[in-house]
Design a binder for these strands. Structure first.
Length: 179
DNA sequence: TTTAAGATGCCC
DNA sequence: GGCATCTTAAAC
């Protein structure tokens, strides 16, 4: 998914962001995943459906978005943690309360949803359909990708150490690492 | 029914 | 390091 484009056709502008950071959550076997042990609730339900749909949820005051992965009944998901603005930068600045630093607009999972005006209304929406879809971007070679443990899951036992965060080396729009 | 924690971000 | 703010899971 790294290098692919998220496109959101809003009524104001077309907003486009290149994916530069993701995290993998492996369904039933991953203690850090919401779907650990196949836990199926109103929130996690969409992960048990067909792949390619939007799994979004609210975390504190923010919305976080995922792409559902794996076949039906296999609740995997990929969290989109950061994008690099490609189009609609001025609208993103407005959406982010006039944040000045362009590197601070979309470098986190809660920041990018606000910049790109992606809300909980997209729960279950398919990522192949307008007005919110993923399109072909650039191909990324393996040597351009760096990995690390995932962020913000320190209380997830062994899973906290799995190197399932993926991001583009030296890209200034990647989020700041923290535990 | 109640409570505590959370795949965060911003301010001090 | 604290706190906003709200959903959800799990304990009572």
């Amino acid at each position: 998914m790294l290098g692919k484009l998220i496109v959101h056709e809003t009524k104001e502008q077309i907003l486009v962001g290149k994916i530069v950071e993701t995290e993998a959550y492996q369904g039933s076997n991953d203690e850090a995943a919401h779907s650990f042990k196949n836990l199926r609730t109103k929130r996690t339900d969409i992960m048990f459906k067909d792949p390619g749909r939007v799994y979004c949820y609210q975390m504190h005051t923010h919305v976080l978005i995922n792409v559902v992965a794996g076949p039906a009944e296999t609740p995997h998901a990929i969290l989109i943690r950061a994008v690099e603005p490609v189009a609609g930068l001025d609208q993103m600045i407005l959406n982010r309360s006039h944040i000045k630093n362009k590197f601070n607009l979309t470098n986190g999972p809660g920041k990018l949803t606000k910049a790109m005006d992606i809300s909980m209304a997209y729960y279950g929406h398919h990522w192949s359909q307008k007005p919110l879809y993923i399109s072909k971007g650039i191909n990324i070679n393996a040597f351009e990708i760096e990995t690390s443990p995932r962020i913000g899951i320190a209380n997830s036992g062994e899973a906290a150490h799995y190197p399932w965060r993926f991001f583009l080396k030296h890209n200034p729009y990647v989020s700041n690492y923290r535990k």
